[in-house]
Design a protein around this nucleic acid. Structure first.
Length: 547
DNA sequence: ATTGATGAAC
C-alpha cells in the first residue's frame, strides 16, 4: 500500500517538475507550488530549486517570492544561496545580494566560484566602489582571484565605478583574455568618457560582437560626439554584426541630439525592417527622438502606440518633457494628470519636466504647486529642481522672489541655479543684480568659458563696452579656451554644421542673407526689401552678444 | 547555474 502511494507521489512529482519547465508566469508557478505543497512535497529539493530559479531569474519572475520560499528552507544548498544572490544582483535592489552574502558568512556557509560574479555585478550596479573593493578583498581571501569569470566581472565593476586604472590593471593581468574581457575594458573606457582609449581597445580587438560596437557607439553618445556615433553605426551596418535593441537605443539618442529627423525616421524604418522587437526602451527612444527633432505628432503617435498598462514612468516622462520643450504646456500638464489616472507614479524627473513646462508657459503658481508636491510625495528636490524653479521665477520677472528662493535653499546653489537667475536678470534688465550673479558664476566655474561670456553680455546690454571687452581678456589671461557655439541643420538627411561667424560653408553667403532677413523680421515684424536683404549690417552690440 | 551594453531632465 505504502509502495503504491510513494509511486503515485513520485509520478505527481515528475509531472509537477515537467510542468514547471513549461511555466510562463508567476501565476502558473504559484498554482503548481500550491499543488505540490498540498501533497506534502514542498521540501523536495529539485522542485524547490526550480521554483527558486524561475522566480529569481526569469523575466516574468518575482525575486521577493523567491526569497520567501528560500527563507523557509532549513539548510539551503549553495545552489539556492547563489540563486537568490544572482536574482537580487539584477533586481531593483542589488544591495540585497550583499545582505544575503553577509547572512551566508554569518552562518558559516562557504561561498563558491559562482557566488562572486553576482556579488561583483551587484556592486557594479550600485556604482559603489567601496562595496566592490570589499567584495574584491573577499575574492582574494577565499582564493578565487584567478577565476576568469570573476576577473571579467571585476573589470566591469571597476570600469562602471569610474576606477578605470584598476580596471586596466586587472585587464592587463589576465592571461588569455576572452571577448568578455575586451568588451568590459572597452565599455569601461566608454563609460568614463575616455573615447581615445575606447577606440584604441576597439581597434585592437581581433573579434568584435554587437556588444563591442554598441559600447563604442554609446560612449560617443555619452560624450556628446553624436556625429562620430552615427559614423560608427554606418560602419557597423557595412562591416559589423546586426544591430540590436541596445545599439538602436543609442543611435536614436544620437539622432535626437542632432535634431536629425530624416535620419531618425530612417532608423525607425530600419528597426522595423530588421524585425527588431519594439521594446518599451526602443519606443521611449523613438518618442524622445521625434520630440527632440520637433516632430511632436510623430512622438505622440509612437507614444500612443504603447498600451498604457505596459507603460512605465520613463516613457511618460519622455512625452511630458517633449511636449513641455515643444511649448505645448497644456498638453504636457494634461498628460501628467492622465499618467496618474493610469497609476504610474511620477518621479523626480517627471517634476523636472513639469517645471520646464511651467517655465515655458509662464505658469508660476502651478510651478510652486509642483515644487511643493515633490516634498509631499517624499522626494527631496535636487539642485536641478531648484534651477528649474529659479528659471520659472526669473523668466516671469520675479527676480527678488528668485533671489530669496536661492537664499533659503538648503543646499549650495549650483552654477545652473545662478545661471537661470542671470538670464532672468539680463532679460528683465536688472543689471545691478546681473553683475553680482555674473561675478559669482565666474568664481564658481573659473574654467568655464560661458561664465565669462555671461558677465560680458551683462556689460554689453549695459553698453559698458570696455568692461565687456575686459571680461574676454580676463578669460584669455586665465587660459580659458573658448569653444565656439554651433548648431546643426539637417536637410534631406545631410547634416550641416554652423558655427558663429563661420563662412566656410559653400552656401554661406545665402545663409547669412537669410539670417539677416529673419533677424530683421523678428525685430521689426515686417519684411525688408530684397535689396537690403544681402547687406551685412550686424551692429557692435549684436557682435558682442554673439561673441 | 557564472562574467560584458540600452530608454526620461539638466
Amino acid at each position: 500500500m505504502l509502495g503504491v502511494l510513494s509511486c503515485k507521489i513520485a509520478s505527481i512529482n515528475q509531472t509537477a517538475l515537467s510542468l514547471l519547465d513549461k511555466c510562463k508566469s508567476m501565476l502558473e508557478l504559484k498554482q503548481l507550488h500550491a499543488v505540490v505543497i498540498s501533497f506534502g512535497l514542498s521540501q523536495d529539493d529539485p522542485f524547490i530549486s526550480k521554483i527558486l530559479c524561475f522566480s529569481a531569474l526569469s523575466n516574468s519572475g518575482d525575486i521577493d517570492y523567491s526569497y520567501r520560499v528560500f527563507s523557509q528552507l532549513s539548510t539551503p544548498t549553495i545552489f539556492s544561496w547563489n540563486t537568490i544572490i544572482r536574482g537580487y544582483s539584477s533586481s531593483k535592489n542589488p544591495i540585497r545580494s550583499l545582505f544575503i552574502y553577509i547572512k551566508m558568512m554569518r552562518l558559516g556557509v562557504a561561498p563558491d566560484y559562482l557566488t562572486y560574479p553576482f556579488l561583483v555585478k551587484a556592486s557594479a550596479r550600485l556604482l559603489n566602489q567601496e562595496t566592490g573593493v570589499s567584495v574584491h578583498a573577499h575574492i582574494i581571501k577565499t582564493g578565487h582571484e584567478s577565476d576568469r569569470f570573476i576577473l571579467n566581472s571585476l573589470i566591469h565593476m571597476y570600469g562602471s565605478c569610474g576606477n578605470i586604472v584598476w580596471a586596466r590593471k586587472i585587464f592587463d593581468s589576465i592571461q588569455g583574455k576572452n571577448l568578455v574581457s575586451w568588451n568590459s575594458m572597452l565599455d569601461g573606457y566608454a563609460k568614463c568618457g575616455e573615447m581615445v582609449f575606447a577606440q584604441k581597445v576597439f581597434e585592437s580587438m581581433s573579434e568584435k560582437d554587437v556588444r563591442s560596437w554598441s559600447s563604442l557607439i554609446d560612449g560617443y553618445v555619452k560624450t556628446g560626439e553624436y556625429r562620430e556615433a552615427m559614423a560608427i553605426f554606418e560602419k557597423m551596418r557595412v562591416v559589423g554584426p546586426k544591430a540590436n535593441e541596445v545599439t538602436m537605443v543609442s543611435v536614436l539618442c544620437a539622432c535626437a541630439h542632432l535634431g536629425a529627423l530624416e535620419k531618425g525616421r530612417m532608423m525607425h524604418k530600419y528597426i522595423v525592417d530588421c524585425g527588431l522587437p519594439l521594446t518599451l526602451a526602443l519606443q521611449t527612444s523613438l518618442v524622445d527622438m521625434y520630440a527632440k527633432c520637433g516632430a511632436i505628432e510623430e512622438a505622440l503617435l509612437a507614444f500612443h502606440g504603447v498600451s498604457k498598462s505596459q507603460s512605465d514612468v520613463l516613457i511618460w516622462n519622455a512625452m511630458i518633457g517633449g511636449l513641455a520643450t515643444h511649448g505645448s504646456v497644456e498638453e504636457s500638464l494634461k498628460l501628467f494628470k492622465e499618467m496618474q489616472i493610469v497609476g504610474i507614479r511620477p518621479d523626480e524627473v517627471t517634476y523636472l519636466c513639469l517645471l520646464a513646462a511651467c517655465a515655458h508657459g509662464g505658469l508660476v503658481k502651478e510651478a510652486w504647486y509642483f515644487f511643493e508636491s515633490l516634498n509631499r510625495c517624499g522626494m527631496t528636490p535636487t539642485s536641478e529642481h531648484y534651477a528649474c524653479m529659479v528659471d520659472v521665477l526669473a523668466r516671469a520677472g520675479q527676480l527678488s522672489t528668485a533671489y530669496q528662493f536661492i537664499y533659503q535653499m538648503p543646499i549650495e546653489p549650483t552654477a545652473s541655479v545662478l545661471g537661470a537667475l542671470l538670464s532672468g536678470c539680463i532679460n528683465h534688465r536688472n543689471l545691478a543684480l546681473a553683475e553680482i550673479v555674473g561675478r559669482k558664476l565666474i568664481e564658481l566655474e573659473p574654467n568655464h568659458d560661458g561664465r565669462y561670456i555671461g558677465l560680458s553680455n551683462v556689460y554689453a546690454v549695459d553698453k559698458r563696452w570696455d568692461d565687456a571687452r575686459s571680461m574676454r581678456e580676463a578669460m584669455e589671461r586665465r587660459g580659458v579656451k573658448k569653444s565656439p557655439g554651433f548648431s546643426f541643420v539637417e536637410i534631406s538627411g545631410v547634416l550641416h554644421r554652423f558655427i558663429a561667424h563661420d563662412k566656410t560653408h559653400p552656401e554661406s553667403e545665402q545663409t547669412y542673407s537669410m539670417l539677416n532677413f529673419v533677424v530683421y523680421q523678428m525685430k521689426f515684424g515686417c519684411c525688408k526689401d530684397n535689396q537690403e536683404r544681402s547687406s551685412n549690417d550686424t551692429s557692435t552690440e549684436d557682435d558682442l552678444l554673439l561673441f
